[in-house]
Amino acid sequence: MSKTREYNVKLAAMGILEPELHYGIYARHWWTSRPSEKNQNTEKFLIPIRPGQKSIVILNQRQFTIRIVKLLDNNIYIPGYCAESLELSSEISISSTAAITSLYQQLFNKNTKFSGPLLLGWDDNEIIKELSSDVCFFPFSISYNKLNIFIHGIGVSNKLELKNAGDGYHATILHFYKKKRSYFHQFIQNNTCKIQIICENRIEVEYTDNTPQTVWEKVWNDSKVLYEYNGITLFGINSSKTQQQIEDLKRLTCTTTEWNNQDQMNKLYNYYIKRHIKSSNINWYKLFLTWIEKKITIIELYSELSKIYPLNYKLKNEEIGRWKTFLKAVGCSNIASFTTEESKV
């Protein structure tokens, strides 16, 4: 059995996590498993593919850099890879292996082939640790025969018909709909189950109902796609992995007496807000310190948020919803809703 060759890879830039990419509808394209685990039938730990990541390696006494970019393909962004050495660079490719191999062969006129994932450092424990250091939630996949369900968001509720899944839960299936490759985006919003069927970054049709089974029955009334499964299986919420994640999230809460514990508060903020919303850096923790110091018991959310966001910043419904969920998780109650579609802070 041949042994995988080891390379001395240095991480020059770790790149960034983007909520729209890493936790959005097309999130499955922005996570990968370790190269050494690709062919193993075990649960795989996923690594974020981060735009802006740069890795450096020496091949045949020459320095090469591999970087990750966003590549527009069929109206969606997927990872693109470019290899560089001094003044030369490869074409941007959807394959890191193709990018580094093509440049190496151009320079040395050899047929040598390299593993792009290995040269990016995705089998190096220290590099993986750094790339994952600011990840609050790791998506995961569930497989039933040839069906793959990608879970890229977890939310909790007390609803037994949802098996305690709740707002913030997102799962996507890549399958054919009317002979077109489509994304079946399943999510829970306001404790209601929704399915969007998306093709070429356009919502073809959307269904809403109270449970996974009843919303899928609406899909089946129009098309028999995935008819061999039941709704709760397709949503992925009955798998042991999902149920464990839901139980873990239930414990990701605190009371108002724990607001002085900044480490715990950071974990909660990162999970409920930061990983979902890309916004300017705000001193959010200052709000809690003020509330503790002044012993404030009634908070008007709109005016309080205006103190930490930039002047004229427009706070959207999604952000308000995330803040309400976050505040509920840290012990607040009776959080009022905004009625306007978009609030100006």
Results as ranks from 00 to 15, higher is better:
residue 318 E to S: 13
residue 63 Q to L: 07
residue 275 R to C: 04
residue 242 T to G: 00
residue 28 R to T: 15
residue 96 S to V: 00
residue 32 T to F: 05
residue 203 I to Q: 07
residue 21 L to E: 01
residue 329 A to H: 03
residue 152 H to A: 10
residue 176 F to L: 13
residue 287 L to F: 03
residue 206 E to V: 09
residue 282 I to E: 08
residue 284 W to Q: 07
residue 302 Y to R: 02
residue 155 G to Y: 01
residue 204 E to V: 15
residue 259 W to N: 02
residue 286 K to T: 15
residue 18 E to I: 12
residue 324 K to P: 00
residue 40 Q to L: 10
residue 180 K to Q: 11
residue 98 A to S: 08
residue 54 K to I: 15
residue 164 N to W: 08
residue 1 M to I: 14
residue 107 L to I: 15
residue 86 L to V: 11
residue 127 I to K: 00
residue 2 S to H: 14
residue 143 S to D: 09
residue 290 T to R: 15
residue 146 K to M: 12
residue 342 E to V: 14
residue 94 I to K: 14
residue 42 T to Y: 13
residue 209 D to T: 02
residue 294 K to N: 14
residue 273 I to M: 02
residue 144 Y to G: 01
residue 284 W to N: 07
residue 345 V to L: 15
residue 196 Q to H: 07
residue 218 K to Y: 05
residue 48 P to K: 07
residue 234 L to W: 08
residue 132 S to F: 00
residue 105 Q to T: 04
residue 316 K to W: 07
residue 64 F to W: 02
residue 212 P to N: 04
residue 252 L to P: 03
residue 124 D to S: 07
residue 216 W to E: 09
residue 274 K to N: 10
residue 137 F to I: 02
residue 99 A to F: 00
residue 172 T to I: 03
residue 102 S to P: 01
residue 30 W to D: 06
residue 198 I to F: 01
residue 137 F to K: 09
residue 217 E to P: 01
residue 327 L to R: 05
residue 11 L to M: 09
residue 294 K to Q: 15
residue 173 I to M: 06
residue 228 E to Y: 07
residue 183 Y to D: 11
residue 160 L to S: 15
residue 337 S to K: 13
residue 166 G to Y: 03
